[in-house]
Computed example of a mutant assay.
Amino acid sequence: MIVYNVKRRWFTMKNDAEAYRKAEGLPPSGTYTLRIESRDDLAALLNGLCGIDGIHRYVEVVEEPVPEEVLARNEITNNPPDCVPLFLVKDWEQRMKGIYK
Rank of each mutant, 00 (worst) to 15 (best):
Y58A: 12
E93C: 07
I52M: 08
V6R: 04
K14N: 15
E63A: 12
T77C: 08
V6K: 03
A17C: 10
W92L: 04
Q94A: 15
E37Y: 10
I36M: 14
D16L: 03
V70Y: 03
L42C: 13
A43W: 03
M13P: 04
G51D: 07
M1R: 14
L45K: 01
I52D: 05
M13E: 11
T31I: 07
R8I: 05
A44Q: 07
V59C: 10
Y20W: 10
L49V: 08
N78Y: 13
T31A: 04
P81E: 13
P67L: 09
H56V: 04
R39W: 05
L45A: 04
E18K: 06
R73H: 11
P28K: 01
A72M: 12
E93I: 05
P80N: 11
I99H: 04
C50A: 11
Q94D: 13
G51P: 00
P27L: 01
E37M: 12
Y20I: 02
V66G: 09
L42K: 12
M96F: 01
R21P: 01
E68G: 10
V61H: 00
G48M: 06
E93D: 09
F11M: 04
K97S: 06
P27N: 01
Y32F: 15
K101C: 02
A44T: 05
K22Q: 03
V3G: 06
D53P: 04
A72Q: 13
G98E: 07
E64M: 11
I76L: 13
V89A: 06
L46P: 00
N79W: 03
G51N: 08
R39F: 01
P80Q: 12
D82F: 01
L26Y: 00
E64S: 14
E18G: 02
V89I: 12
V70A: 03
P81H: 15
E60Y: 04
I52Q: 08
P28S: 01
T77H: 09
K14E: 15
K14Y: 15
E63Y: 11
N78Q: 13
R8F: 04
L42T: 09
G48C: 06
A23R: 06
A19E: 00
T77M: 09
C83Q: 02
D82W: 04
W10S: 10
N78L: 15
K14A: 14
P81A: 14
K22W: 02
A19C: 00
R73S: 14
R73D: 15
N74V: 13
K101W: 02
P65Q: 08
D41W: 06
S29L: 07
P27K: 02
Y100C: 08
L88K: 14
V3T: 10
T77Y: 08
